[in-house]
Amino acid sequence: MIDFQNTFIGIWAWLAERWDTFHTAFYLNFIKNDRWQYLWRGLGVTLEVAFFAVLLGAVLGFTVAIIRSTHDKHGRFGLLNFVCRVYLTVVRGTPMVVQLLISYFVIFASVNNKVLVAIVAFGVNSGAYVAEIIRSGISSIDRGQMEAGRSLGLSYWQTLRYIILPQAVKNVLPALGNEFIVLLKETSVAGYIALQDLTKGGDIIRSQTYSAFLPYFAVAAVYLVMVMTFTWLLGKLERRLQTDA
C-alpha cells in the first residue's frame, strides 16, 4: 500500500527546498545590490534605441521605396536610384553586428554617444528592409489607381500621397510589423559596442552572480512580453483597417 502521508510530506519538502533555492537565487540576482536596475535601465535603453531606429528606418525606407518605384515607372532619378541600390545591397548583404561595429569604431569613431550611434546603425539597417517591403506594397497596387488619380489632374506626388501609399502600407502592414519586431530583438546585439541595453543588463548580472539561468530567462521574458504586446496592438490595427474597406 502506498503511504500517502509520507509521499505528501516528501513532495512538500522537495517543493519547499526548491522554493528556498529559487528565493535565494532570485534575491541574489535581482534584489541584492539593486541588481534589477540593470534590467530596468537596460529596458529603457532598448526601447529608446528601438523606437528611434524604427522612426529613422521608416523615413529612410519610405524615401528609398519612393525613389526606386518612381525610377522603375518613369526612369527618373537615375543617380539616386543607383545610390539606393548600393545602400540596399550593402546593408542587406552584411551582418548587423558588423555594421554596428563599423558604425561605432570607424564611421562614428569620434562620436561618444553610444545610444545615438546605435540608433543610426539600427535605423539605417532597418530602412533597407522597410524600403523593400514598401516597394513591394506600391507595386501591388493596380496601375488603374495611378491612372485614375492622374486622369483627375492630381500630380504624380499627390496620387502617391493620397491614393497609392495608403493602400500600399495597408497591404504590407503585417510585413512591416514583423520588421519592427525583428528590429526590436536585433537591438540585443548593442552590447557589442558596450551599450547597456536589456540583454547586456542580464549579462552584467550573470557576470556578478555567476548564475545564468535567472538573468537570461528574465531578459527573454521581457522581450517576449514586449513582442506579444506589439503583435496584439498590430492585430487590432489590422482589423480596424480591414473594416474600412
Partner: peptide
C-alpha cells in the same frame, strides 16, 4: 522643364474626365 510640362499636363487632365472599364474607384 520637366516640372513645368507636368504642371501643364496636370492642368489639362483636370479639364478632361476619364471613365475606365474597371471603374478604378479608390477602395480606401
Amino acid at each position: 522643364s520637366h516640372a513645368r510640362r507636368e504642371e501643364n499636363v496636370n492642368r489639362y487632365r483636370s479639364e478632361i474626365g476619364m471613365v475606365f472599364q474597371h471603374f478604378n474607384l479608390f477602395p480606401h
